[in-house]
Computed example of a mutant assay.
Amino acid sequence: MQQLEGFIVSEKEDYVCLLRKSLYGLKQSPRQWYKRFDSFVASHDFKRSSLDSCVYFKKNSNGSFVYLFLYVDDMLIAAKDKGEIRKVKAQLSEEFEMKDLRPAKKILGMEILRDRKASKLYLSQKGYIQKVLCRFNMQSAKPVSTPLAAHFRLSSALSPQSDDEIEYMSHVPYSSAVGSLKYAMVCSLPDLSYAVSVVSRYMANPGKEHWKAVQWILRYLRGTTDVCLQFGRTKDGVIGYVDADFAGDLDRRRSLTGYVFTIGGCAISWKATLQTTVALSTTEAEYMAITEACKEAIWLKGLFSELNEDLQISTVFCDSQSAIFLTKDQMFHERTKHIDVRYHFVRDIIARGDIVVSKISTHENPADMMTKSLPITKFEHCLDLVGVHC
């Protein structure tokens, strides 16, 4: 660390200070804080999850569990017994200076709403979305019904070609807007996955048409600020839905993978991303998408098992019968030998019975909205299937 102004040692101006203790605001501070917190909770019999290093849990003598979820210096504590929660709070207060905000109402920009009579819990980002709309002057924009209309055919060919366009786009907050949309999508809005995936590809050199697409997404948010995820009591296990859009990328002709996992009919994990290699057929694109979805299913299954929730075999639904047959076919023949070896591990997973891949009608597959622009009727049906409600 450079010598502080007013404390520079004469004739040793080029010397630096050796830090004996991490200071707030330095790059290593979060790591030092995490190490200290980790050692403290470990000394109080909490175990860190091997699948998510920010999740801690402790089993009490009566068989109940206490869960502690950490994000930098924001924390959630969950347990069936409020007395256990108070006990953990008291232990933390002895070691750290902390503020008790009572029952969780808001964390990381997400609002937690409860309907105890109906045993429902809602996750909303209404406040955050309103701030984003104000930041980009879209609070009075005319709402639209879908995140991205079908007439947007975005590609790198639409990037600025003239000096005037380059000058115009240099004053457009494209990266900031896409970053804000990404955070909203990751936290509670799976319906934005496809649209955000598309506009994120042009962060390096966006054009006017790309910016219009971002504004369209903001207009969609303008009309859906009250949309939230709805959770309720359930005995259902994790169910996954996966889909692929063959050669959907107009620049490199790569396909798009989209999946969403639900528990009790409400989305808990979702993703829309370009595949790393070019698929030569729709079947191959769906096959590679199934592999990515099964990797997520294995992680979710392991996480729930650690948290004392014994899940049955996870089911992943796909609307491509040919891709499902390919996952069960151990023949290494002409049609599949060029596919990257890492995608074939799904066959072993299915053969062991860890994951079941089943057929579902395209009309009942909510992952369809993760890979393409849909008509409003189909789009709203997909939202209903994954527990996204107003």
Rank of each mutant, 00 (worst) to 15 (best):
L274C: 12
D249E: 12
F332K: 14
V227C: 13
S322P: 02
S314F: 03
D251A: 11
G302V: 04
M288D: 03
D249P: 12
R233Q: 08
G302P: 04
A279M: 00
T291V: 00
T291L: 01
F317S: 04
G264Y: 01
S269C: 14
A323I: 14
L280K: 14
S255N: 03
T291F: 10
Q330V: 10
R254W: 07
T282E: 11
A285S: 14
D249M: 08
V316G: 06
D249Y: 06
C318A: 09
I313Q: 12
A272N: 06
S322H: 03
T257C: 13
D236H: 09
S281P: 11
L250V: 08
D226M: 05
V238Q: 00
V260G: 03
C266G: 11
A244T: 00
A285Y: 06
A289L: 05
I263H: 01
Q275A: 10
T283Q: 04
L300G: 02
I268S: 10
A285Q: 13
E306K: 02
Y259K: 05
I324Y: 01
E309Q: 08
T225K: 02
T277H: 00
T234G: 13
K301R: 10
M331T: 14
S314P: 09
M331N: 15
Q330I: 08
F317W: 02
L229S: 06
L307K: 08
A247E: 05
L311F: 06
S322R: 03
S255V: 13
T273L: 06
Q312K: 13
Y259C: 14
A244K: 00
I290L: 10
T257Y: 11
G240M: 10
A247M: 09
C318M: 05
C318S: 13
G264F: 00
T273S: 15
T273P: 01
R252N: 12
G258H: 07
I313R: 10
S255H: 15
M331P: 00
E286P: 10
T315N: 06
F246L: 06
D310M: 13
V278F: 09
E292R: 12
N308G: 11
L256Y: 06
A267S: 14
Q275C: 03
F325C: 11
I268L: 11
V316M: 05
R233V: 13
T282H: 12
D226Q: 03
Q230N: 12
Q321F: 01
I239R: 15
T273Y: 00
F261M: 09
A297S: 10
T225F: 04
D251P: 08
D249F: 12
G302D: 07
G248P: 15
E292L: 12
R254G: 04
L303F: 03
G264A: 03
A297Q: 01
C266Y: 04
L280I: 10
L326G: 04
A289E: 02
E306I: 07
R252Q: 15
K235R: 11
W270V: 09
V316A: 03
I239Q: 13
I239F: 05
F304V: 11
L280V: 01
D226V: 07
D310W: 07
M288S: 08
M288G: 05
D236P: 00
I313S: 09
W270H: 04
F261L: 14
L280D: 12
